[in-house]
Computed example of a mutant assay.
Amino acid sequence: MYTLMGPNCLILPPVLSTAGTARRYIRRNLLEMGLEAKIEDAELVVSELVGNAVKANLVLVDGASENPTQGEEGGICLSLSLKSGAIRIEVWDADPAPPITIVPEQDDENGRGLLIVSRIAVGWGTWWPPEGGKIVWCELSLL
């Protein structure tokens, strides 16, 4: 499993309640950094990125029930750092498939996550570490 570097790294289980844990983690760290004004945007994008990572770790078992895959460590890695005037959020998951950006219909209940991230963040993308899986990242401007 890829281990995200830095002092602000958290390993999360690939379960639905993980997004709430990720939001609390981001809030606490941004408060400690004195970045209260960025908490709302950071919580929103981390919810979307972690939610996508959880979905990427769900597999259909026997065509009927969803169970989280365990990967090597059974988790999702969340990293928060400050880089060049921006807050950088990175989320690793074991599925190497790239995230899919779709244009949802007005009545669709899902599919807006990466569109939200792209509107709030100054940049976002995906990269594939040599250890496997993928990292989806975004940066929020400090200005």
Score class of each variant (00 low, 15 high):
Glu36Gly: 01
Glu73Met: 03
Asp41Trp: 00
Ile39Pro: 14
Thr69Asn: 11
Glu72Gly: 01
Val61Glu: 13
Met33Glu: 13
Gly75Gln: 08
Leu30Glu: 02
Leu60Val: 02
Glu73Thr: 06
Leu35Asp: 03
Pro68Met: 02
Asn67Gln: 12
Ala53Gly: 06
Glu72Trp: 01
Leu31Asp: 04
Thr69Arg: 14
Leu80His: 02
Met33Leu: 15
Asp41Gln: 15
Ala53Trp: 09
Gly74Val: 04
Glu73Ser: 04
Gly75Trp: 08
Arg27Val: 11
Gln70Lys: 06
Glu43Met: 09
Ala42Thr: 06
Gly71Lys: 07
Glu40Gly: 11
Asn29Met: 14
Ser47Val: 02
Ala42Ile: 01
Asn29Ala: 02
Arg28Phe: 13
Glu72Pro: 01
Arg27Ile: 08
Ser79Gly: 00
Leu49Tyr: 03
Arg27Asn: 04
Arg27Ser: 06
Ile76Gly: 07
Asp62Met: 07
Val59Phe: 10
Leu58Asn: 02
Ile39Gln: 14
Glu73Val: 00
Gly34Asp: 14
Ala37Thr: 11
Arg28Asn: 15
Ile39Glu: 08
Asn52Trp: 05
Leu78Asp: 07
Ser47Leu: 01
Val46Gln: 00
Lys38Val: 07
Ile39Lys: 08
Ile76Asp: 06
Ala37Gln: 12
Cys77Glu: 11
Ile39Asn: 02
Gly63Met: 04
Thr69Cys: 11
Leu44Asn: 14
Met33Cys: 09
Leu49Val: 05
Glu32Trp: 01
Asp62Gln: 13
Ser47Cys: 09
Arg27Asp: 15
Asn52Pro: 00
Leu31Ser: 09
Gly51Thr: 05
Asn67Phe: 11
Glu32Tyr: 10
Val61Phe: 09
Gly75Ile: 04
Leu80Thr: 04
Val45Thr: 12
Leu31Val: 15
Asp62Ile: 00
Cys77Asp: 05
Ser47Pro: 04
Ala56Gly: 07
Thr69Trp: 07
Ser47Met: 10
Leu78Gln: 06
Asp62Arg: 03
Gly34Ser: 05
Leu58Gln: 14
Gly74Asp: 11
Val45Trp: 14
Asn52Leu: 07
Val46Asp: 13
Val46Pro: 07
Ile39Val: 09
Gly75Cys: 10
Lys55Ile: 02
Glu43Thr: 03
Cys77Ala: 10
Arg28Met: 12
Glu66Ser: 12
Met33Phe: 09
Glu66Gln: 12
Leu35His: 07
Ala42Leu: 10
Val61Tyr: 12
Gly74Trp: 04
Glu66Lys: 01
Glu66His: 12
Glu40Ile: 08
Leu49Ala: 02
Leu80Tyr: 02
Asn29Cys: 13
Gly71Tyr: 08
Asn29Ser: 14
Leu31Lys: 15
Gly75Met: 05
Glu43Ala: 10
Ala56Leu: 04
Asp62Cys: 05
Leu44Lys: 15
Ser79Glu: 08
Gly51His: 14
Asn67Cys: 02
Ile76Cys: 02
Gly71Glu: 03
Ser47Gln: 00
